[in-house]
Simulated scan of single mutants.
Amino acid sequence: MPDRQVMSLSFPGAAISAIGAARRQVQRLAQPWLVQLVLRVALAVPFYKSGILKWHGFLQLNDTAIDLFTEEFKLHLPGGPYAFPHPAIFAFLSGCGEVMFPVLLVLGFGTRFAAAGLILMTCIIELTVPEGWPIHLTWLAMALGIAAWGPGRISIDYLLGDKAFRS
């Protein structure tokens, strides 16, 4: 019976110790510079993949991109949905933003500007495809994190002097 009492007394201490060790390991792995780099790349991927599909050549949209903004995509606003005004312009701007902003994010150049651009794009995407809100919320959270905490050490912005890490 005394062995059982020793086991029950040592279990909470062992569990607390194991949790503390696991927490320290996670903190060692999740360095701010690594988190910032992974956030930038993770946000860049879906936008770049979508943007690259809109182009037929250098600054030449494919017909599908324009057709999407003309026929398929609608703005879901009160009283709507409404067609995009000037769909070719929206398709062009969308294609440019979906390629340019992710490249800037991955390079870590103009990072906060690129994140702000993707925040705006995400809001427009949400108005266009409201049922996609779970993934749009994820994109928004990543973009806000990048805008708030900056590009991190592995970035051109850092080399140029953006060393501010807000907490």
Rank of each mutant, 00 (worst) to 15 (best):
L29N: 13
P2G: 08
Q60P: 06
P2V: 11
L37F: 06
I66V: 09
S167R: 15
R153V: 07
I154M: 10
G161Q: 02
F11S: 14
P151T: 04
H136W: 07
F69K: 05
A141P: 01
C96E: 07
M142D: 09
E98V: 01
R40I: 03
F58M: 11
G97W: 00
I16H: 12
E131V: 15
G161Y: 04
T111G: 02
F73C: 05
Q27F: 07
H56R: 15
K54E: 04
C96R: 07
Q60D: 10
K163M: 15
G132T: 12
Q31P: 04
D162Y: 14
T64E: 10
Q27G: 07
A88W: 03
A65F: 06
M121T: 02
A15L: 13
Q31G: 02
Y158P: 04
W55Y: 05
W149E: 12
V26D: 09
D3G: 14
V35A: 08
G108L: 00
G51L: 06
M142G: 07
G80Y: 01
L107C: 04
Y158I: 05
V129P: 03
A21G: 10
G97L: 02
G13T: 06
W139C: 10
N62Y: 04
F101W: 15
P151F: 06
L104F: 15
S167N: 12
G57P: 07
T128G: 08
V106W: 01
F92P: 02
G51F: 05
I16R: 13
A141L: 08
S8H: 14
A148V: 12
L59P: 06
L75W: 05
W133T: 05
K74Q: 09
M100E: 04
G13R: 09
W33S: 06
W139M: 11
E131K: 15
P85Q: 05
G79T: 01
M100H: 12
P78K: 13
Q5D: 14
Q60R: 11
L29M: 14
Y48N: 08
L105I: 00
K49D: 14
L140E: 13
A14I: 13
P78G: 10
W139T: 03
M142L: 11
Q25M: 12
A21Y: 14
C123K: 03
N62V: 01
F113Y: 08
A18G: 03
